[in-house]
Computed example of a mutant assay.
Amino acid sequence: MLKIGITGGIGSGKSIVCKCFQLLGVPVYDSDTRAKWVMNFDPELREQLISTFGPETYDAQQQLNRTYLSQRVFHDAEQLAKLNGLVHPQVRKDFYRWLDVNIQAPYVLKEAALMFESNAYTQVDHVLTVSAPIEVRRARTLLRDPHRNAAQVDAIMDKQLSEEERIRRAQFVLYNDDAQLVLPQVVQLHQRFLALAVDKSIL
């Protein structure tokens, strides 16, 4: 099975692009959503998180306390590294289980905002990055997330790879810059990925 990673900075619109691929019948693994699920329901990981960050990691309903955890790690590189070191391996395992369920698909997409930062790119054959100018991404994020201000959005961007670096490291680029239509680019990439999947199956 061909595995395509899809990434992009905050506000790039990668979730919309993924929905377009899903309309074409392509299975999409959403790393962020699955990470939240794993952090809530994987007993081993829950125990590790409580041991590392304290019982406040989960609320009275035993649900992940994302606000508390974010406050603990966002401005502390060492704590963030600890969190990633616990969560990312479990998400990798979850992805492989998901692949077994979708084994009949010619190709799948794995969506991850931190595709390169978390080394998730090592699990895929090629990476597609969704690109948009920083000012466009900032405006979209502020519109989507009214609880955030411009400084908070910029702080998130600063923790992600630069647009130039993501493009340099990706094999495919889709431009979601409000100047180029997304759907024709998705259809074209879909045809390319199907052809690559055929080539891989022959090999």
Results as ranks from 00 to 15, higher is better:
Asp32Tyr: 04
Asp32Arg: 06
Asp32Thr: 12
Asp32Phe: 12
Thr33Gln: 13
Thr33Ile: 03
Ala35Ser: 12
Ala35Tyr: 06
Lys36Tyr: 08
Trp37Cys: 00
Trp37Lys: 04
Trp37Leu: 05
Val38Glu: 00
Met39Pro: 00
Met39Ser: 02
Pro43Lys: 14
Glu44Ser: 14
Leu45Met: 07
Arg46Thr: 05
Glu47Phe: 10
Gln48Arg: 14
Leu49His: 00
Thr52Ile: 09
Gly54Asp: 13
Pro55Phe: 08
Pro55Asn: 07
Pro55Val: 14
Glu56Ser: 11
Thr57Tyr: 07
Asp59Ser: 04
Asp59Val: 08
Asp59Lys: 14
Ala60His: 11
Ala60Pro: 03
Gln63Asp: 10
Gln63Pro: 09
Leu64Glu: 08
Arg66Met: 02
Tyr68Leu: 01
Tyr68Met: 03
Gln71Leu: 04
Gln71Ile: 03
Arg72Cys: 07
Arg72Ile: 06
Val73Tyr: 01
Val73Ser: 06
Val73Glu: 02
Asp76Met: 10
Ala77Phe: 02
Ala77Ser: 14
Glu78Ala: 15
Glu78Met: 10
Gln79Met: 08
Gln79Gly: 01
Ala81Leu: 12
Lys82His: 08
Lys82Tyr: 03
Lys82Met: 11
Leu83Phe: 02
Asn84His: 02
Leu86Asp: 04
Val87Phe: 01
Gln90Trp: 12
Val91Glu: 01
Arg92Gly: 06
Lys93Phe: 02
Asp94Gln: 11
Asp94Cys: 13
Tyr96Ser: 05
Tyr96Glu: 10
Tyr96Gly: 03
Arg97Glu: 14
Asp100Asn: 15
Asp100Pro: 03
Val101Cys: 09
Val101Leu: 15
Asn102Lys: 13
Ile103Phe: 06
Ala105Val: 01
Ala105Arg: 08
Pro106Asp: 15
Pro106Glu: 15
Tyr107Glu: 01
Tyr107Ala: 01
Val108Lys: 00
Leu109Arg: 00
Lys110Glu: 13
Ala112Leu: 04
Ala113Val: 14
Ala113Cys: 11
Leu114Ala: 09
Met115Ser: 05
Ser118Val: 08
Tyr121Phe: 14
Thr122Met: 11
Thr122Arg: 11
Gln123Ser: 12
Gln123Met: 15
Val124His: 13
Asp125Gly: 13
Leu128Arg: 00
Leu128Cys: 15
Thr129Ala: 05
Val130Gly: 04
Ser131Val: 04
Ser131Ala: 12
Ser131Ile: 01
Ala132His: 09
Ala132Asp: 12
Glu135Gln: 06
Glu135Asp: 09
Glu135Arg: 02
